[in-house]
Amino acid sequence: MSAVSFQSVSKTYRTPKGDFQALKQVSLDIEEGEFFGLLGPNGAGKTTLISILAGLSQASGGRVLVQGSDVQANFAEARRKLGIVPQELVFDPFFSVREALRFQSGYFGVRHNDAWIDELLDSLGLADKANANMRQLSGGMKRRVLVAQALVHKPPIIVLDEPTAGVDVELRQTLWHFIAKLNKQGHTVLLTTHYLEEAEALCSRVAMLKQGRIVKLSPMSELLKSASSNVLQFKTDSALPAGVAQRARVTGRIVQVPAADAADVEKLLAALREGGVTPEDVEIRRADLEDVFIHIMNEAAVKQGGAA
């Protein structure tokens, strides 16, 4: 039995401009103990899928099972098995951190939970904030409390929806160390993130969504293996020759160009020389998840555009 099973899930919203289909027949099984990544650009349908999983939104078609429990027909049972960290910073301003965690335990019928609460506070760097009012915390500290609230009832399945968006490096490292430990202990983790280096480091399998459809579902190792090309990376302030520019990804002064082999690298460097461009800090690296992601999204855009 899968930890989470999305079965032909569709979601249509009614808008003044007409119906908008956010999800289109999404089918996906996440196995017990997996660290699974759900990736896609803004508007791809990731948060809609998470909202349906959490029971906050109802699918227009299909169904979702959590360890065999239907999220609509058996909501309470399914919800007890989930620990969900939302994107938004939602908190009760009237309670201290420890009180908030005790109340959250109570929502799931968990009593005498102080030992686990203490472990959460310590593991997430909140021990010295245990008695602070939630209003006194920084955004990063509030994010840590959200993670602790999601885990306070020891759910077998942890859902992280952009958990490190806008937070500092220390929190990211603390969070991933703790979540990776829980995953090794058998917890299933579902992660959505725009930080692709996090997904590459943590996830054993990923699904990529675009415009409400799954366009790629693959083990991480196979996904990276399929990216046989290298990437020529350098810095420049000069305008790129047209032949290089149409292949390049430019971020400020940093230019990244896919290169099939050593001969291709030499052709690119020759084109730069002929164009009067002197590259700085030149390096050749293996393609990473970000390179693969951009390639797959571009391919999907062409196919979906043709289908339209």
Results as ranks from 00 to 15, higher is better:
L182C: 07
K154H: 15
T193Q: 02
S228F: 10
R205G: 06
K181R: 13
E222G: 02
V145W: 01
S228P: 01
M141C: 07
K142H: 10
R205T: 10
K129V: 10
D161M: 12
L224Q: 09
I157G: 00
P155A: 13
R135D: 14
I157S: 00
D128H: 11
A130D: 12
R213M: 04
L146F: 05
H177T: 15
C203L: 12
K154V: 14
K210S: 11
S221N: 12
S204Q: 12
P219A: 03
L191D: 06
E200M: 01
P155D: 15
S138R: 02
L217Y: 05
I214E: 02
G166Q: 04
V231I: 14
N133W: 12
R172H: 05
I158R: 00
A227I: 09
L196M: 12
V167H: 08
L190T: 03
Q136P: 00
Y195W: 03
T174I: 15
M134H: 05
I158N: 00
E170M: 08
G212T: 08
G125W: 13
L217T: 02
E200L: 10
N230W: 06
K129C: 15
K225V: 12
L151D: 07
S204L: 02
M134S: 10
P219N: 03
C203T: 07
M134Y: 09
V152Q: 04
L217F: 09
H194G: 10
H153Q: 11
A201W: 00
L146G: 14
R172K: 06
A201L: 11
S218A: 15
R213V: 10
L171A: 11
A127F: 07
F234S: 06
P219S: 05
L191V: 09
H187Q: 09
I157E: 01
H153E: 12
E197R: 03
V147H: 00
S221I: 14
R144H: 03
N183T: 04
M220Q: 06
G212V: 07
Q211M: 07
F234A: 11
G125T: 12
L182P: 03
A201C: 04
L191W: 03
